Simulated scan of single mutants.
Amino acid sequence: MLGFIIQRLLQAIVVMLVISVLVFCGVYAVGNPIDVLISPDATQQIREEAIRTYGLDQPIWRQYVDFLGRLIQGDFGRSFVFGSPVLPLILSRLPATLELTLVAVVGATLAGVPLGMYAGYRPDSLAARAIMGVSILGFSVPTFWIGLVLIFIFAVQLGILPAGSRGETREMFGVSWSFLTANGWQHLFLPALNLALFKFAMMVRLARAGTREIMLTDTVKFARAAGESEATILRRHVLRLIAIPIVTVFGLEFGSTLAFAVVTETIFSWPGVGKLIIDSINTLDRPVMVAYLMLVAFFFILINLTIDILYVALDPRLRLKAAS
C-alpha cells in the first residue's frame, strides 16, 4: 500500500509541474493587465515603471522561473488589484465555497443513492417513476434558471428564506462557518439546493443502473438462496458493489463543484472564491487567476489520489495488486 501511495504522489508532482506550465503560459499570454490597472491618460514613464514593478518587462520564461521559485516556497505572488498576497486572499474566500460544496454534494449523495437503489429495485413502481422524473428535471433545467426560480418562490413570493449573502457565522478552528448557526443554514439552503439538484440526478441514475444490473447477478441469487433478507442484500451486497462508481462520481463532482460554483455564488451573492475569480478575470489580475487554477488542479489531484486509495480499500483484488 505504501509503495502504491508513493507512486501516485510522484505522478501527482509531475502532473502539477505540467499544469503549472500550461496555466502560467495560458494566463500570461492573454491581454495586458497594464491597460486595466493604469489610466489611459498616464504618461509613458508611469506605464514603464508599472511594467517593471509587476515584472512584466521580463520574457515569459523568466517570469515562469520566478513564479516557480516562489511557488516552491508557498508564495503565489501579490494581487495586482488588491496589493496583498494571493494565497491568503483566496483562502479567506475558500471556506464559504467549501462549505457550500460539501453541503450540496454530500446532501445529493445521501438522498440520491438510496432513492436510486429503490428505483432500481422496484423499477415499475409509481415511486420509482416519480424519482426518475425528478432526476430528468435535474439534468434538463439549467442551474442559473433553477436558482432564479428558487429565489422567486422562497424569497420573493413566500418570504421564508433569504435570497443572498452568507448570514450569521460562527468560528470553528479559526474559520467562520455558516452551518453552525440557524440563520446561516437559512442562507445556505437555497444555494446548496441549487447546486445539489444536478448532482442528485446523477447519483440517482448511477445508483439505479448499478442496482438493476447487480440484482440480476449470481451474487444476489446465492444470497437469496442462503436466506438473507432483501434489506440485507441491498445493504451488504448491492451497495458495496456499486460503491466504487459512486465514490468516483462523488470525488469528481466534489472537485468540479468546488472549482466551478461561480454561477450559483453569483446568483445568490455567496461570498466565495467564484466572485473573486470573476473580478480577477475582469481586471486581468494574473496572480489571482494563476493561483486559483493551480489550487483547483491541486484539489483535483488530491481528490483523485483519495479515490485511488478508497478503490484499494473497497476492492480486495486491488489490495492484492497494490501489495504485490
Rank of each mutant, 00 (worst) to 15 (best):
F4L: 00
L9W: 07
Q11S: 05
A12L: 02
V14F: 13
V21W: 01
V23T: 14
F24C: 06
V27H: 09
Y28A: 11
A29N: 07
N32T: 14
I34A: 09
S39F: 02
R47Q: 12
E48N: 13
T53K: 09
W61T: 12
Q63A: 00
D66W: 06
F67V: 05
R70K: 15
R78N: 11
V81I: 05
G83K: 00
P85D: 05
V86A: 00
L87A: 01
L87K: 05
P88M: 02
P88H: 15
P88W: 04
I90C: 03
R93P: 00
R93Y: 00
L94S: 05
L94G: 08
P95C: 04
A96Y: 11
T97D: 02
L102V: 15
L102K: 12
L102A: 10
L110C: 07
L110D: 05
V113W: 00
A119S: 15
Y121D: 12
D124C: 14
D124T: 15
A127H: 14
R129L: 13
I131N: 03
I131C: 03
M132F: 12
G138T: 10
G138C: 15
V141H: 06
L148C: 06
V149P: 10
L158W: 02
P162D: 05
P162T: 07
S165L: 06
E171W: 10
S176D: 15
W177S: 13
A192I: 05
N194I: 12
K199R: 12
R205H: 05
G210E: 07
T211P: 12
T211V: 07
R212C: 09
M215D: 05
T219W: 02
T219P: 03
A223K: 00
A223F: 00
R224H: 00
E228N: 03
R236E: 01
V238C: 03
I246R: 01
I246N: 01
I246E: 07
V247S: 10
A259Y: 02
T266P: 10
I267G: 06
I267F: 07
S269K: 08
W270N: 06
K275H: 12
S280N: 02
N282L: 15
T283Y: 11
L284H: 11
P287W: 02
M289S: 14
A297L: 03
A297M: 03
F298I: 11
L302C: 04
L305T: 09
I307V: 11
L310N: 01
L314R: 09
L320E: 15
K321C: 12
A323W: 14
